[in-house]
Write a protein that binds this DNA or RNA. Structure first.
Lengths: 182, 182
DNA sequence: TTAAGTAGTGACTGATCAATCACTGTGGAA
DNA sequence: TTCCACAGTGATTGATCAGTCACTACTTAA
């Protein structure tokens, strides 16, 4: 009856911590695909292979589930940029490289961030603000440490192009992607 | 009973064309404030001072209403930039100026565009794609006509900063606004 | 005066879903 | 052997809303 269409991966010990992780992984994908309001907790549950009510044993409500998924996306973003080791004259291009890599390996998490831009919900907006702040701060620290001139301006431009890139992806408009100078 | 809180303006002749306009004006604000899915057609109706069912006499459904509101936002954007007359060395700053002006005078239309970025709905996405394309094309034409070097790159940067600015507004993060070089 | 178009409404419904509740099954520890 | 914590589910519901329907009231033109 139920399609069991896109269920996920192999057996791990069924602790609630694992379940939480599995649910989050599924939630990122489902939310990215359908959007926060159209996505249902039943779709997430089906993807994990559990019942819909069980989600509410591990997350207070749908909003909290989304926020957790969004935080996850930002955590990866932060980790990705943190891991870049490069000197002043390669830091920017290296950062762009790992970012583009992340777009390919984890597109749903990018989409999720774009979704969150438009959602008028206090908890979600707070999480989004925190995420954007963390990324900006991190890059400013890295740019500064690498001795790049005008780090504020450079980071701002980096963020602007990054967001345009996100948008190009969400809208499926590759022609919108930033035209890297040179 | 009903609050009649934010009803709108004075009597015009009650033709359906006027009503359409009034509904769109209200819709832009209501959608911007609550988001596409949380906003209700009843809220839009209340703001106009008509009954909820009447909206469906003038718009096929909620989606069509949103698309019409979004198109309206893009029309103003296009008009705003079209009206800029400036030479090669002032075109960019002048464009930024009118854009910032529009952010102050019509914030809801900016917010609406940000909302639309994340909505997974074919009609809305198409409208969004068309809008972004029109703006990009227009600016490329203007930059080229003004004899600006590397118009593609310049427009891309302009769009990137513009979108970051939109985002800063939607997230209420003024500190995120582009740091204009110089 | 009537007929027809236009502007508009009150009352309702069908569908959807987040969230709750009351429950089952199971593996260990005491 | 019992008891209890943990993992999990089926059934249901309460609220919300887009959209429909059957209707009223006004105006104009023949």
């Amino acid at each position: 009856m139920t399609k069991v269409s896109g269920e996920v991966r192999a057996k791990e010990e069924a602790t609630s911590v694992n379940r939480r992780e599995q649910i989050l992984e599924a939630a990122v994908v489902v939310f990215a695909e359908h959007g926060y309001f159209k996505a249902t907790t039943a779709q997430v549950a089906e993807k994990v292979g559990i019942s819909q009510p069980y989600i509410f044993k591990l997350f207070k409500n749908k909003e909290e589930l989304f926020v957790a998924a969004l935080d996850r996306a930002f955590e990866r973003t932060i980790r990705t940029f943190t891991d870049v080791e490069a000197s002043g004259d390669t830091l920017l291009e290296e950062s762009i490289r790992v970012y583009e890599q992340m777009m390919e390996t984890h597109p749903s998490e990018i989409i999720l961030q774009v979704q969150a831009l438009g959602i008028r919900d206090e908890a979600i907006r707070s999480s989004m603000q925190a995420g954007m702040n963390r990324v900006t701060q991190l890059m400013e620290n890295k740019f500064t440490a690498a001795g790049i001139a005008n780090p504020e301006v450079e980071v701002s431009t980096f963020m602007a192009n990054g967001m345009l890139c996100h948008i190009a992806m969400a809208l499926e408009m590759p022609e919108l992607k930033p035209k890297h100078l040179k």
